[in-house]
Structures are given as C-alpha cells and as structure tokens.
Amino acid sequence: MKGYLGIDIGSISTKGVVLDENDTIIASSYIWTEGNPVSAVQRLISLLKKELPSDIQIKGIGTTGSARKLIGLMVDASIIKNEITAHAVGTMHFHKDVQTILEIGGQDSKIILIENGIIKDYAMNTLCAAGTGSFLSSQAKRLDINVEDFGDLALTSKNPVKIAARCTVFAESDLIHKAQVGYPKKDIVAGLCKSIVMNYLNNVGKGKKIKEPIVFQGGVSKNKGVVHFFEEALQTNVIVDENSHLMGAIGIALLSKKMESEKVYNLDVCDISFETRGTECRGCPNRCDIVRIFKDGKHIDTFGNKCEVGSR
C-alpha cells in the first residue's frame, strides 16, 4: 500500500496527514509545536505510525508551514512548499468550486482568491500578528477559559462588547478595561471574536472581492464564535470543513504525490539525533543570525546566512 505524508509545521501547532493512492486520509494528527518544531515532528511521526497499517510504503513526503525548510531537511522531504499554495491545493481538492479561502492560523492570516481552479490573488498579514490564533489563546489564558470552549461561550452572548480591532495591544487594553468595568465574560469573549473578524476583513481582506463559496480554515476556524461573526459580517454562508485544521498538510501531501519517485521513505526520524545551534556569524559586519544544523552530530546545512562565509 502506498502512502503520502504531508507535514504542516506552524508556529502554534504541527499537523500531519497520510493519504493513500485514492487521496483518502488514513492517518492524521494534530499536536502543539511548543516552540520546538524538531521534537514536535518526532512526536507527530510516532503518533502517525501507530495509526498506519504495517504494509505501508511512504512514497512521498511534503513539508509546509513556517518551519518547512528545517523539517524538510530533517525528513528529507520530496517537496517543500509555502503554506499559501499548500492550503489552496488542499482546499480545492475537497471543494472544487471554492472562490475564496479565509485562513487564520496561529501566527499569520491569509486570504486566497481562486477563479476556475487557479490562484488569482492572495494576501497575508504584514508587519504584526494582530488578530490571529496566538492572540486568542493568550487572551483565553488571561480570562481563564480553555481555548476550545471559547467559541461556544461567545455564541451565548447577545451583546458583544466593542473591542478595538486594529491592533492587538489596543485590543488588549480595551479588553482589560471592559473586564474591570464589569462586563460579563461571555460578552467580552464574543467581542474578542468579533474583533478578530473585523481585523481580518480590514487588514488582509482589504480591497479583495470576497465571493462565494467561501471556505474558512486554519486553527481559528474551529472557533464557532469567529465563524458566526464572519457569517454576520459577510452576510453569507461560510463553509468550515471537518478537516479545516489539517488543510495545509493535506495540500502538501497531494503535492508530494505529484512529485512521486521510486524512493521509499522510512519514518524512523524519531530516533535520529537532530540538533540545531543558533549563533551570530562573525565573518563580516552583517552579523547574520545563523542556525547550524547537525544530523547525527554531522553538520549538514546552515540557515540565515547572507553569504558564503556563514555556511562553513
């Protein structure tokens, strides 16, 4: 049996999916990155291994997400692609006629416009991470609520408070102020969800024509409150796939299938020692922050260097 592994290593969570020849999911996993992509992927693969049948042959591995290059090197991936393309490919596989993809992840948010199966336009949040998953989870901690319960609590509110949508720092001081004045928790939570939506539409979605059908994905799409306010703001139906959190991993697995070679990959990276060391290169005044990567104690690559000096 042939299988294709897609790994999406985000800032907050790491997602893995194994597809078979007919593009159906035979194993999937979703874990927290916890600031260490290498160990997260090692955990992820050992989790996936338990779900897989024993006769599986992995014919392709793809990596995407912000740590795609590092992990791509670690698992010797056949394809390393950005998350925008991966998300578009994954979504178009399940929703053939999709025209707009809204995506809010842990650290970034993006909008992808599709016409006749071709990416027409895209945008990604720029300088800051306002209105993304990490903001929601840090505020959930402040309010002492589980992130998972956030959406349900938001839906119970009839009167969401107004929270500044432009900037996370302003939003946070607004939120503290509202809490101290005495607003109930559910209204604050709902206001927070609404501010995420407003921030998204005013920031990444600015000037973009959002056409139906709309698919919403990324970790935040699991938050029912945010989905509700998106539907309210756009005044249409917003589709959230049951695998919306895995879409990037599915997309990159599909792409790795296209790149199929004779090579059979083995999944024992969990046992290999894989070490990264960050240093400041002193070769020239540029002072690049470089990361040197060691596999089994051997130096195999360097990231972050602007010139040859740093790669030694």
Partner: peptide
C-alpha cells in the same frame, strides 16, 4: 512594506507563493 523588523522568512514565503501563482496562471 519593509521595516527594520520584517523577517526574511516571511518575505521568502510571499515571493514563493507569488511565483506559484504566476506559474498556475
């Protein structure tokens, strides 16, 4: 929009996606 703080990885991601988009078109 460049500033002292923009990370290089973000720029590379956008360029890569832009290239993919051009190729798809």
């Amino acid at each position: 929009s460049f500033d002292a703080a923009t990370s290089e990885v973000g720029i590379k991601t956008r360029i890569e996606a832009f290239y993919d988009m051009i190729e798809m078109r």
